[in-house]
Nucleic acid binder design. Sequence first.
RNA 1: GCCAGGGUAGCUCAGUGGUAGAGCAGAGGACUCAUAAGCCUUUGGUCGGCAGUUCAAAUCUGCCCCUUGGCACCA
Length: 513
Amino acid sequence: MSKKFYITTAIDYANGSPHLGHAYEKVLTDIVARFRRMMGEEVKFLTGLDEHGQKVQMSAQKLGVSPLEVCDRLASEFQGLCRALRISNDDYIRTTEERHKAVVQDILQKLYDKGEIYKADYNGYYSVRQEQFVTEKEKVDGTWPEIFGEVTEVTESNYFFKLARYQDWLIDTIRANDQMIYPRFRSADVLQFLKEPLNDLCISRPKERLEWGIELPFDPDFVTYVWFDALTNYITAAGYGTDAFEQHWPADYHVIGKDILVPPHAVYWPIMLKALELPLPKHFLVHGWWLSSGSKMSKSSGEVINPLDLIDQFGADAFRYFVTREMNVGQDSEFSLDLFMSRYNSDLANDLGNLVSRLLNMGGRYTEGRVPPAEIEEAPEKQLKELWLKTSAELVPLFEDFQFHKALDRIFTFVSGINRYAETRAPWKLAKSETPADQAALRTSLATMAEALRLAVALLTPVMPEISDKIRGLVGAENFELIEGQLEWGNRLEGKALGEKTILFPRPERKVL
RNA sequence: GCCAGGGUAGCUCAGUGGUAGAGCAGAGGACUCAUAAGCCUUUGGUCGGCAGUUCAAAUCUGCCCCUUGGCACCA
């Protein structure tokens, strides 16, 4: 069996409803996955939910339900988001699943047997009210804030994973693989972190303090905490311990936010894999955050944009287009309703949607609802074909390099080119003329517009799958699996039926939200 | 404090040595197939600040300012 292209998102934490950040990461990963499929690769695309831990246990207590009920509810919310966004993941992992518990316990036992895990006393400051250890860092003006209540120094036995012994190896590995982290400048964050000596990692919690977790196989009084539970999902879903594993692992891309690169994904995870003698993931694709007036959009700032609202109102594809067009992968981006509306109205409704409308309408009026033959090739046609040649040559490299915002810019520049072409030929004027030359120009102009639209949406497909399919249907083109052979200008649409007049991106009747 | 990203037109951003760009927003115009859309023309910027290198700097160097993130057991 050949190796699949294995791509993952981070798994979401079951501690709140999905927001724009969750939605964005899934869309970004989905675009890479869809693009790779079009390029002919077999893809495994994983996303999922991280369900254990203190916060889940506490919110369950608060609601008076079991932790699993809390997780079930959130899992269906997050999976609903995936469906609403047309995310093409072919697996969804929940860390409470048996397949996952088995792998976590298996690797913990292996590492314990190898002497990579040991028991020791952990000394720290404990907040009874928050049921968690607090650090010096959380002090404000030399004392812990009121929300922590009474904080006492306690000593607790726990299990530790030997991180420190792999520090030099990790530094060498990251220096030697400058392609591992995209964008590259993020490697500097990792290396800076590794300048300080690593401490071993506390990986357990006593059950008396936290019972909502996976039990340590070698000590039933403890559950494992956070990292060995959450990060391990990537190999669980890859089929660790089964024949399928080699077909998936190593992952080609872990898509993550910039906040979880250091230390978990770039330090803990590689060292865990090294200790298990497994290959490292090939790449991390590290994206930025959505900002609102310069601050991170998050629940805590009370500026949650519920992506589902925009999706319901404007459609998954419009949402996907917006986040992809605005975000320079790796940087932060600005989000506002005004920006969204501006993109929706000018790019989608006015430029693309309206172009489809005018073609279908003219096709119905002038060429009996069919794509006519392209009979002549003069300056306007040559110019548009040249623009396409230039555009199409850029698109695949831009997609390969995650420059989706630029790829969309190029595609929509081409769409503008089609509108300009229509003005130049002015088929509505040609239609009033009886001369053979004008009639040939009329047929050519509609054929050219249809073919240009087919090409324009070819590489729009990973970003806007439904609209692209719909436009292909309307101009008489076939859907396709592979991009190969789809980017060349031709006359395959000649004689095909054009669709009924359709409004692809209706103008909002009133301002909602 | 240390490290890194960003600071370019009202807004969102392209632009790594050679006469400041795009889209949107604003203004004017011609057209009418179309979602009052599209097309053409146009207003608008001491390129964060101060020095320096150079014939030439948004672009290279230094210092400073603003902003975002990281600096471990919090995911």
